[in-house]
Each structure stands twice: as C-alpha cells, then as structure tokens.
Design a protein around this nucleic acid. Structure first.
Length: 335
DNA sequence: CATCAGGGCCCTG
DNA sequence: CAGGGCCCTGAT
C-alpha cells in the first residue's frame, strides 16, 4: 500500500519519542475499546493507527509533540485501558497530571451511555449493532482546532480529495514523530499555520479553504476560543461561539456537537451522502426524504437520536471491513 | 473534449 | 430564503 504521506514531513527527519509515563485508565462501563479507538467510517489519517486491542495517536500538548499508545486490558463491563505516553525528553513536573484529564475527555472515557444500550438492546434496528458494539461512544480524539481542520477538509470534497488535502497539510506543516516502531504525522498549531500565506496554502491544492484555514487559525491563535471552557457551556452557547467561526456552517456544527462535545441528541440535518446510505439501510430505497429519516430517529430514539445514528452508521462500516458492500462502495468513492 | 457534483459555506439580492 | 461562486478532481 502506498504510504499516506511522504516519508519526511516538513523537510525534517522524524522526531524520536520514547516512553516516559504509563498509567491504567478505568473507563466507565459499558466501554468497547475497539469501537471507541477506531471509527471505520472516518477516512484514514497518518496521525493515528489502530489494530485490534491497540491504538496509536499523536498529540500536541503544551508545546510538545507526544505519541500515545492505548492497549485494551479489560472487557466491556469491566474496562481497563493501559496508556503509554511517548515524549521527546523528560517531562516537567505536573505535566502528566494535567494531560491525563484531557485524554479522558478526548477519548470520552467517562460518559455513561448505559441507559441507551439497556433501552434499545432489543430494538429491531439497533439491537444487532448494540450486540456487536455495546459501549461505543462519540470520540473526539483530537483537539477542537484539529477537528475543525478536518471538517474543513471534508467540506465539498469526496473522500479521496479530503485525504490528499489533509496529508498535504501534514507534509507541509506538521513534523513526523517516531515512536513504538511507527512513524506518524503530528498536527500543526494555529500559529504554525499562520506562518503560511494564503497563496502558499493554496499551493497545497486546498482551494478556497485556504482562507477558512487562516480565519480559524486566527481565532484560535487569539485564544478567543477556549475549548475547555466551551465544554462546560450549554449547547446553545457552544453553537453560537463555534458557529460564528468563518467556514463553520450547519453541517459542521451538527458533526461537532456530537463528535466533539458529546451531545447524544438533537439530530437536525442529514447530509446528502448520509441520506443516500440511510435510505438504503433503513428503507431499502435509493433515496427517501430527509424529513423521513429525521422522523425515524426522533420517534424511535428520543434523546439519543445521534447516538442511535452512530451505532447504525459505524456498524455498517465495520461490516464493510469484513465484506464488500457494493452499493456502499459506490457512495464512498474513495478512489 | 466539456460538464458537473462533491461528506458546504459565504454572500448577495 | 434562493442561488451563484468557490478550488480542485474524478466520473460521466
């Protein structure tokens, strides 16, 4: 397989990381390691990797590039995750104590979804997905800024192009790290991105998004948006703060509220390709009205519309791992 | 070869 | 509120 990105990102050799800290995390049950550390519907990206029971991801935190390795050491009902932190050198006192709660949030270890799985384990549609993936939750994995970069990259683009754009950005802006036998990309910071002028960003073939990237980076560079404060705010406030960013519209907000802020309800919008796929999955029809799909989730799974969608959606893409689903391949258009 | 939509969003009228 | 424009690419 062709590597996702060129071997030397940013023109510099990979930064070598070594293991500096280990700890065992105890997620709230039910917790399904694989279903949380890998989302098969997401396009592959060189900043993370997964193998059954193990997961690797890079991270920028307090001016350092880190590598994280997660290992599944528990069960769905008695979960335990072994975390190893890789860093370029010795970490200052208090660094890890501060980092761990952030990791707990980013990987959504504490959210309790037992009410959902209990309520719908016998549901005609959700039952089989819950059987397979009980303990799956939304997972941000990245910072809010990084997630926004990804969402901008998927706007108005097919999957293949999104991958090209993100990897071009990694190559130009992010430095690779090497840890645990792997070489992986790291994200850039807002300030690092702002060092590139709009025309230079455009050379990476991101098109009109170059302007959006800069505007969002400016907002985060000014610290006008504090992710940790936002997490404590009510939904309406988050929608206002994040929705005011240039380039963030209804579709991006819809994703963000679930995947980054973990609101399990409030499904309002079905993007065109999800509409096609859900039409097929739920109604065995090539295309039903958006309102019909919305009504389906709102009447059957009140309070859990988004999570219910997520279970059906990821279950379908896990199935795609095991077998070829022709109609789905046509919708994904990876190549 | 040309045309067009794509996992949107902004701006204008 | 509708519709054009926007960067690029692969499909048709």
């Amino acid at each position: 397989m062709v590597p996702l990105h060129s071997p030397i990102a940013g023109g510099r050799p990979p930064l070598r990381l070594r293991p500096v800290a280990r700890t065992t995390l105890r997620p709230r049950s039910p917790y399904n390691f694989d279903a949380n550390l890998r989302k098969p519907s997401h396009f592959p990206s060189s900043d993370n990797a997964w193998d059954r029971g193990s997961s690797w991801i890079t991270m920028r935190w307090r001016n350092r590039r880190l590598g994280l390795r997660f290992r599944d050491e528990g069960t769905v009902d008695d979960p335990a995750v072994r975390l190893t932190i890789f860093a370029p050198g010795v970490l200052p006192r208090g660094y890890v104590r501060d980092l761990v709660p952030e990791i707990v949030w980013r990987f959504n270890l504490n959210q309790d979804i037992s009410g959902f799985t209990r309520a719908f384990e016998d549901d005609e549609y959700l039952g089989p997905a819950i059987e397979r993936w009980r303990g799956m939750k939304p997972v941000a994995a990245n910072s809010l800024y990084e997630t926004l970069m990804i969402y901008v990259v998927i706007q108005n683009a097919v999957v293949r192009r999104s991958i090209q754009m993100l990897e071009a950005l990694f190559d130009r802006l992010g430095r690779d790290v090497r840890f645990d036998g792997r070489t992986m990309s790291t994200f850039w910071t807002p300030r690092e991105m702002l060092r590139l002028k709009e025309v230079d960003l455009r050379r990476l073939k991101v098109g009109y998004r170059a302007k959006t990237f800069r505007r969002i980076s400016e907002a985060f560079g000014r610290r006008s948006l504090d992710e940790r404060l936002l997490r404590e705010m009510p939904r309406e406030r988050i929608e206002r703060e994040v929705g005011d960013l240039y380039g963030v519209g209804p579709a991006t907000l819809e994703y963000l509220l679930f995947e980054d802020f973990y609101f399990l309800d409030g499904l309002r919008l079905i993007p065109p390709w999800e509409r096609k796929i859900m039409s097929r999955l739920l109604f065995r029809s090539s295309l039903v009205r958006e309102s019909r799909i919305l009504r389906f989730f709102h009447t059957r799974y009140p309070g859990y519309e988004k999570l219910a969608f997520h279970y059906l959606w990821e279950d379908l893409f896990w199935r795609r791992d095991r077998e070829t689903i022709d109609w789905l391949e046509r919708e994904i258009r990876r190549s």
